[in-house]
Design a protein around this nucleic acid. Sequence first.
DNA 1: CGCCAACTTGATAACATTCAATGTAGGTGG
DNA 2: CCACCTACATTGAATGTTATCAAGTTGGCG
Lengths: 245, 245
Amino acid sequence: MPPFDMARQNGELPANLAGPCGACAVRGLTICSAMDADDLSLLAEIVQIVRLDAHENLFHEGEPADHLFNVTSGTVKLFKLLPDGRRQITGFMITGDFLGLSVNETYSYTAEAVTDVTLCRFPRHKLDRLTEQYPRLQRRLFAMASNELVAAQDQMLLLGRKSAREKICSFLVTLADRAIRRGQIESPVHMPMSRSDIADYLGLTTETVSRTITQLKTAGLIQLQPSGRVQLNDLEALRGEAEGI
Amino acid sequence: MPPFDMARQNGELPANLAGPCGACAVRGLTICSAMDADDLSLLAEIVQIVRLDAHENLFHEGEPADHLFNVTSGTVKLFKLLPDGRRQITGFMITGDFLGLSVNETYSYTAEAVTDVTLCRFPRHKLDRLTEQYPRLQRRLFAMASNELVAAQDQMLLLGRKSAREKICSFLVTLADRAIRRGQIESPVHMPMSRSDIADYLGLTTETVSRTITQLKTAGLIQLQPSGRVQLNDLEALRGEAEGI
DNA sequence: CGCCAACTTGATAACATTCAATGTAGGTGG
DNA sequence: CCACCTACATTGAATGTTATCAAGTTGGCG
């Protein structure tokens, strides 16, 4: 079975090529902001829209990296595996995030849908050609990679040096900050991933994640709400605990 | 006191602007390979050469990121700190490595010389202007950032999911692979950093690093040699242990 | 309503840390 | 040139945080 369904493919809508991009609500968040409004049609020409159900794979580590993706709705997790099955999630990608960057022509991680997901898919070779004509696009890609690098360094600090409680607090703060950066309310935060996913992201076990969340609940710092929402009662306290203060 | 000494500054050698770059032995390893031989003078015009003694700082986390650097000799460590002093080293940069990438105009980590070091220093605003004229340079920067991102993800897997022994083996293998990629012999590897640095890179304590190295020595996998050299007796066995096999 | 997966909670164990002491090497001054 | 001093590394014993193993509990979905 194919790893994804193509809901819409370029060429099916010749009457309005700029349509899918021109009307895109999340354009400002991602690489597409590098294109002038009247050049968006060039992106629209090469983009394909992809939908995935929760738990479907977008691509696997080691496969040829023929496509780059842009999340337009939902959450995707990226992870690497050790031969015995140990797993490290390197990131949760949400609306506006870019994924699929690679070096040696193969994906360095597996991408799997956490929730139902919609993405824009760009064939790599076509995007490459476009970046040659649009230095701004190339610069935008560079800026996004640099941003991810900074986030990766923060995550290394977390994984290498923080306690379980600090890790969970950091995670919650990150979710809140993401929401704030997107102009959304900071609480409650949307936490659609399983305890097991959180554990594999933070270098813990599901049991420890569960216990620590219970601790924070008991301390009155958070409250769990239905459908994966978490009320943060004292964001500044969480921020402090995240840094070990 | 200034954080570095300027051994040579552009303008002092007007007779041979291409000189410092044209003769550079490590040019092929880094961004400079994006420039044609006859355009190297443009890089030479904006580059400054910097020397640091071991333990000197190049820049601090949070400072304005006015410069980008390229290591031409020696080893530099990059690290982040928690308020209480816990430290995570995010990378050891060696000859050919590029550092100083940042997002929000400030450095996201501190850079300190592990050994005596020589670097090329590029004023950010001048390099930015050059990338506008040289898309190849911009692409090269992007490629280097992408490479670092892949390395960062590997390090997350290490920090989150590997045992102390697997971490040390991974570290040794990484050192060997770096040497191989530079056309050097894979053993003995050069390991100039202290046990404490290794610990802060791998998310361990100095004691655990020391004990684990002793284990590997006892198992006959490695031998310590003078001045920070380590003989790898069975690289493939180390590679296996690094992956938990 | 019942089932299954996900989550929570408990008891025990292990790996790495912490605290402490000893050993070693490189650099300085007598 | 050697002794000393300091920083770094190694080794040992005890502790602790988190993992592991094992039940229970909850909640979503057919």
